[in-house]
């Protein structure tokens, strides 16, 4: 792989906490994410991985700590949240394609309605994106006609259409049939190689090892262990990491 991760910090997470009522899901998360880096987050269910991801784009409002993005503390944002979210895309486990819109409509609605860009240009770009994820021939279909793998690739195209700086993947392949996982991972791999900054919550250990630049193991609301995927996977330092990996690999 000839990708270069630069030293520029995009996200700097400091002492992040998140509680739902009495339940504290994130206890103390500290992490720097660099431009062009693929950070893979693994951990048992209930460890706070998805909550952490959802805090990064403020779908959940953290209850403590700081999140710095491009040098600004996003937890201070109020009206700026909508503009901020355009820079941080998200791909969901259950795709969440807009069911009232065609494939092309899903990809173009953000640039058209939110960014108020020129229709012709937006549609041309959208068709290029759909070609990139291998779905140009399905542009006029509606989501209900697509397979899970196709839906997820449309969802990735929809996110890319906003030209985000970072994309968050929340278990993007967990809801897919095994034979469809590959086609989505292929798109994600190409995206990683193109230099996109990605934070990926996943159970795909092969992908984590091959594509990840930095592996984070979370458990019980903390980052237990982190490092180069190869190192963490072959030589985990903590007992909890060892237990988890022995079940996954």
């Amino acid at each position: 792989m000839t990708k270069r991760v630069n030293n520029e910090v995009v996200f700097s997470v400091k002492n992040l906490q998140k509680s739902f009522g009495d339940l504290q899901v994130l206890k103390d998360i500290n992490l720097d994410i660099h431009r062009g880096e693929v950070v893979v987050v693994i951990g048992p269910s209930g460890s706070g991985k998805s909550t952490f991801l959802r805090c990064l784009n403020l779908l959940e409002q953290p209850t403590g700590g700081e999140i710095w993005f491009d040098g600004e503390n996003i937890l201070k944002y109020t009206k700026e949240i909508d503009a901020y979210r355009q820079k941080v895309g998200m791909v969901f486990q259950l795709f969440n394609l807009f069911e009232n819109l065609s494939v092309l409509g899903n990809v173009t609605i953000g640039p058209l309605r939110v960014q108020k860009r020129n229709k012709e240009e937006v549609e041309k770009e959208a068709m290029e994106l759909l070609a990139r994820v291998g779905l140009a021939d399905r542009a006029n279909e509606y989501p209900s006609r697509l397979s899970g793998g196709q839906k997820q690739r449309v969802a990735i195209a929809r996110t890319l259409a906003m030209k985000p700086e970072v994309i968050l993947f929340d278990e993007a392949t967990s809801a897919l049939d095994p034979e469809m996982v590959g086609e989505v991972l292929k798109v994600m791999r190409e995206l990683a190689l193109s230099g996109m900054t990605m934070v990926v919550v996943t159970h795909e250990m092969g992908f984590a090892r091959e594509v990840g630049d930095h592996l984070v193991f979370m458990d019980g609301g903390y980052i237990v262990e982190e490092g180069k995927p190869e190192d963490v996977m072959t030589n985990p330092q903590h007992q909890r990491t060892k237990n988890f990996l022995s079940k996954m690999l």
Binding site: N100, L101, G110, R113
Partner: peptide, 25 residues
């Protein structure tokens, strides 16, 4: 589905825009 509004917010729509373009239709 609740995910529809979340997806709308994630591409930078306001709550109102999410309602207008995604939820109400």
């Amino acid at each position: 589905n609740k995910g529809q509004m979340e997806a709308a917010r994630c591409i930078g729509m306001s709550h109102l825009e999410g309602n207008m373009y995604i939820i109400i239709p």
